[in-house]
Nucleic acid binder design. Sequence first.
DNA 1: ACATTAAGTGATT
DNA 2: AATCACTTAATGT
Length: 215
Amino acid sequence: MENNQDISEILNLYFPQLKEPELLEELKGVARLKMVKNDEILIDIDEKITHLPLLYRGAIKVHREDDDGNEILLYYLEPGNTCASSLTCCMDRKISTIRAEAEEDTFYISVPIDYIDKWMLKYKSWIDFIMSTYAQRFEELLSTVDELAFKRLDDRLIHYLEDKAKVTGNNTLTVSHREIAYDLNSSREVVSRLLKQLEIMGDIELGRGKIELLQ
DNA sequence: ACATTAAGTGATT
DNA sequence: AATCACTTAATGT
Protein backbone atom coordinates (compact mmCIF):
# COMPACT_ATOMS: atom_id res chain seq x y z
CA MET A 1 0.00 0.00 0.00
CA GLU A 2 2.40 2.73 1.09
CA ASN A 3 6.04 2.92 0.11
CA ASN A 4 9.39 3.34 1.79
CA GLN A 5 9.66 6.96 0.85
CA ASP A 6 6.80 7.76 3.20
CA ILE A 7 8.35 5.87 6.08
CA SER A 8 11.61 7.79 5.71
CA GLU A 9 9.81 11.09 5.74
CA ILE A 10 7.74 10.20 8.76
CA LEU A 11 10.75 8.98 10.71
CA ASN A 12 12.53 12.18 9.80
CA LEU A 13 9.70 14.39 10.91
CA TYR A 14 8.46 12.66 14.04
CA PHE A 15 11.37 10.54 15.22
CA PRO A 16 14.41 12.67 14.48
CA GLN A 17 16.25 11.15 17.41
CA LEU A 18 16.72 7.96 15.37
CA LYS A 19 19.93 8.76 13.58
CA GLU A 20 22.02 5.86 12.23
CA PRO A 21 21.46 5.44 8.48
CA GLU A 22 21.70 1.67 8.95
CA LEU A 23 18.92 1.75 11.55
CA LEU A 24 16.73 3.83 9.27
CA GLU A 25 17.38 1.41 6.44
CA GLU A 26 16.42 -1.56 8.61
CA LEU A 27 13.31 0.25 9.79
CA LYS A 28 12.27 0.93 6.24
CA GLY A 29 12.68 -2.75 5.53
CA VAL A 30 10.53 -4.13 8.35
CA ALA A 31 8.19 -1.32 9.34
CA ARG A 32 4.69 -0.97 7.95
CA LEU A 33 2.39 2.00 7.90
CA LYS A 34 -0.84 1.31 9.75
CA MET A 35 -4.01 3.14 10.59
CA VAL A 36 -6.77 2.70 13.16
CA LYS A 37 -10.09 4.47 13.08
CA ASN A 38 -11.50 6.42 15.98
CA ASP A 39 -12.49 4.16 18.90
CA GLU A 40 -10.83 1.08 17.44
CA ILE A 41 -8.75 -0.97 19.82
CA LEU A 42 -5.11 -1.27 18.90
CA ILE A 43 -4.00 -3.60 21.63
CA ASP A 44 -6.25 -5.23 24.21
CA ILE A 45 -5.62 -6.74 27.61
CA ASP A 46 -4.31 -10.32 27.53
CA GLU A 47 -3.50 -10.02 23.86
CA LYS A 48 -0.14 -11.08 22.57
CA ILE A 49 2.00 -8.17 21.54
CA THR A 50 3.55 -8.64 18.13
CA HIS A 51 4.29 -5.10 17.06
CA LEU A 52 5.47 -1.86 18.51
CA PRO A 53 3.51 1.19 17.37
CA LEU A 54 5.38 4.41 16.59
CA LEU A 55 2.71 7.07 16.53
CA TYR A 56 2.86 9.91 14.05
CA ARG A 57 -0.68 11.20 13.70
CA GLY A 58 -3.70 11.06 16.00
CA ALA A 59 -3.78 9.97 19.62
CA ILE A 60 -4.04 6.77 21.60
CA LYS A 61 -5.71 6.34 24.95
CA VAL A 62 -3.98 3.83 27.22
CA HIS A 63 -6.18 2.12 29.83
CA ARG A 64 -5.66 -0.36 32.54
CA GLU A 65 -8.35 -2.60 34.01
CA ASP A 66 -8.45 -3.95 37.55
CA ASP A 67 -9.68 -7.34 38.69
CA ASP A 68 -13.26 -6.14 38.95
CA GLY A 69 -13.26 -4.79 35.44
CA ASN A 70 -12.93 -1.14 36.45
CA GLU A 71 -11.06 0.86 33.90
CA ILE A 72 -8.74 3.73 34.57
CA LEU A 73 -7.06 6.02 32.09
CA LEU A 74 -3.29 5.89 32.37
CA TYR A 75 -2.11 8.34 29.73
CA TYR A 76 -2.36 9.42 26.13
CA LEU A 77 0.15 8.66 23.42
CA GLU A 78 0.81 11.47 21.02
CA PRO A 79 2.77 11.74 17.77
CA GLY A 80 6.44 11.02 18.35
CA ASN A 81 5.59 8.64 21.19
CA THR A 82 5.57 4.93 21.41
CA CYS A 83 3.95 2.66 23.96
CA ALA A 84 6.17 1.96 26.95
CA SER A 85 3.84 -0.77 28.15
CA SER A 86 4.37 -2.58 24.87
CA LEU A 87 8.09 -2.34 25.48
CA THR A 88 7.80 -4.00 28.86
CA CYS A 89 5.68 -6.69 27.33
CA CYS A 90 8.19 -7.31 24.56
CA MET A 91 10.94 -7.96 27.01
CA ASP A 92 8.91 -9.94 29.44
CA ARG A 93 5.82 -12.04 28.91
CA LYS A 94 4.61 -10.63 25.62
CA ILE A 95 1.07 -10.35 26.89
CA SER A 96 -0.48 -6.95 27.13
CA THR A 97 -1.58 -5.63 30.52
CA ILE A 98 -3.18 -2.56 29.02
CA ARG A 99 -5.74 -1.57 26.46
CA ALA A 100 -4.76 0.89 23.76
CA GLU A 101 -7.67 2.56 22.03
CA ALA A 102 -7.61 5.15 19.25
CA GLU A 103 -8.88 8.50 20.45
CA GLU A 104 -9.30 9.68 16.87
CA ASP A 105 -8.27 8.35 13.48
CA THR A 106 -4.69 7.43 14.19
CA PHE A 107 -1.66 6.63 12.03
CA TYR A 108 1.42 4.77 13.13
CA ILE A 109 4.44 2.84 12.01
CA SER A 110 4.31 -0.77 13.07
CA VAL A 111 7.56 -2.54 13.95
CA PRO A 112 7.70 -6.26 14.75
CA ILE A 113 8.90 -6.66 18.30
CA ASP A 114 11.77 -8.98 17.47
CA TYR A 115 13.77 -6.02 16.23
CA ILE A 116 13.46 -4.05 19.42
CA ASP A 117 16.00 -6.22 21.22
CA LYS A 118 18.28 -6.56 18.26
CA TRP A 119 18.51 -2.87 17.65
CA MET A 120 19.22 -2.19 21.29
CA LEU A 121 22.52 -3.98 20.81
CA LYS A 122 23.36 -2.30 17.54
CA TYR A 123 22.22 1.29 17.63
CA LYS A 124 22.94 3.95 20.19
CA SER A 125 20.13 6.22 19.08
CA TRP A 126 17.63 3.35 19.39
CA ILE A 127 18.63 2.76 23.01
CA ASP A 128 18.31 6.47 23.69
CA PHE A 129 14.89 6.51 22.06
CA ILE A 130 13.61 3.57 24.10
CA MET A 131 15.07 4.94 27.30
CA SER A 132 13.62 8.40 26.86
CA THR A 133 10.25 6.86 26.02
CA TYR A 134 10.44 5.00 29.30
CA ALA A 135 11.44 8.08 31.22
CA GLN A 136 8.58 10.08 29.73
CA ARG A 137 5.96 7.46 30.43
CA PHE A 138 7.27 6.97 33.93
CA GLU A 139 6.84 10.67 34.66
CA GLU A 140 3.32 10.67 33.24
CA LEU A 141 2.47 7.64 35.27
CA LEU A 142 3.72 9.30 38.44
CA SER A 143 1.56 12.32 37.84
CA THR A 144 -1.41 10.04 37.28
CA VAL A 145 -0.67 8.30 40.57
CA ASP A 146 -0.45 11.69 42.28
CA GLU A 147 -3.82 12.63 40.91
CA LEU A 148 -5.43 9.43 42.04
CA ALA A 149 -3.89 9.54 45.48
CA PHE A 150 -4.09 13.20 46.36
CA LYS A 151 -6.57 15.02 44.21
CA ARG A 152 -10.28 15.16 44.33
CA LEU A 153 -12.42 14.17 41.44
CA ASP A 154 -13.19 17.73 40.35
CA ASP A 155 -9.48 18.46 39.87
CA ARG A 156 -9.03 15.23 38.00
CA LEU A 157 -12.00 16.06 35.81
CA ILE A 158 -10.59 19.45 34.85
CA HIS A 159 -7.25 17.88 34.08
CA TYR A 160 -8.97 15.20 32.03
CA LEU A 161 -10.80 17.76 29.93
CA GLU A 162 -7.69 19.83 29.34
CA ASP A 163 -5.65 16.78 28.49
CA LYS A 164 -8.21 15.58 26.02
CA ALA A 165 -8.46 18.97 24.37
CA LYS A 166 -4.70 19.07 24.06
CA VAL A 167 -4.46 15.61 22.58
CA THR A 168 -7.20 16.15 20.01
CA GLY A 169 -6.23 19.74 19.35
CA ASN A 170 -9.82 20.79 19.73
CA ASN A 171 -11.61 22.72 22.46
CA THR A 172 -14.90 21.05 21.67
CA LEU A 173 -14.73 17.51 22.98
CA THR A 174 -17.04 14.83 21.69
CA VAL A 175 -17.43 12.67 24.74
CA SER A 176 -20.33 11.49 26.88
CA HIS A 177 -20.49 11.87 30.65
CA ARG A 178 -20.67 8.12 30.81
CA GLU A 179 -17.34 7.75 29.02
CA ILE A 180 -15.64 10.28 31.26
CA ALA A 181 -16.92 8.44 34.32
CA TYR A 182 -15.46 5.29 32.85
CA ASP A 183 -12.06 6.84 32.25
CA LEU A 184 -11.89 8.34 35.72
CA ASN A 185 -13.41 5.29 37.33
CA SER A 186 -16.28 7.29 38.76
CA SER A 187 -20.01 7.29 38.14
CA ARG A 188 -21.95 9.04 35.44
CA GLU A 189 -24.15 11.05 37.84
CA VAL A 190 -21.19 12.45 39.73
CA VAL A 191 -19.49 13.49 36.51
CA SER A 192 -22.71 15.11 35.29
CA ARG A 193 -23.02 17.10 38.49
CA LEU A 194 -19.43 18.27 38.47
CA LEU A 195 -19.68 19.25 34.81
CA LYS A 196 -22.82 21.21 35.63
CA GLN A 197 -20.87 23.13 38.25
CA LEU A 198 -18.12 23.90 35.75
CA GLU A 199 -20.75 25.14 33.33
CA ILE A 200 -22.31 27.39 35.95
CA MET A 201 -18.87 28.81 36.71
CA GLY A 202 -18.53 29.58 33.02
CA ASP A 203 -15.57 27.31 32.34
CA ILE A 204 -17.36 25.03 29.89
CA GLU A 205 -20.48 24.69 27.82
CA LEU A 206 -22.40 21.44 27.74
CA GLY A 207 -24.26 19.81 24.89
CA ARG A 208 -25.44 16.30 24.26
CA GLY A 209 -22.36 14.18 23.67
CA LYS A 210 -20.08 17.18 23.61
CA ILE A 211 -18.32 19.63 25.88
CA GLU A 212 -16.82 22.94 24.87
CA LEU A 213 -13.97 24.39 26.87
CA LEU A 214 -14.11 28.16 27.26
CA GLN A 215 -10.70 29.51 28.11
C1' DA B 1 -44.12 7.45 16.02
C1' DC B 2 -41.25 4.72 18.63
C1' DA B 3 -36.97 3.00 20.68
C1' DT B 4 -32.61 4.09 22.27
C1' DT B 5 -29.25 6.66 24.48
C1' DA B 6 -27.56 10.93 27.03
C1' DA B 7 -28.21 13.81 30.69
C1' DG B 8 -30.61 15.82 34.94
C1' DT B 9 -32.45 15.16 39.70
C1' DG B 10 -33.70 13.75 44.41
C1' DA B 11 -33.17 10.51 47.88
C1' DT B 12 -30.29 7.19 50.37
C1' DT B 13 -26.01 5.36 52.13
C1' DA C 1 -18.70 10.33 46.28
C1' DA C 2 -21.43 6.32 44.84
C1' DT C 3 -25.75 4.11 43.78
C1' DC C 4 -30.64 3.80 42.81
C1' DA C 5 -34.72 4.98 40.75
C1' DC C 6 -36.88 7.90 37.96
C1' DT C 7 -37.57 11.91 34.59
C1' DT C 8 -36.56 14.64 30.65
C1' DA C 9 -34.45 15.56 26.35
C1' DA C 10 -32.11 14.56 22.11
C1' DT C 11 -31.22 11.46 18.39
C1' DG C 12 -31.67 7.48 15.33
C1' DT C 13 -34.76 4.27 12.56
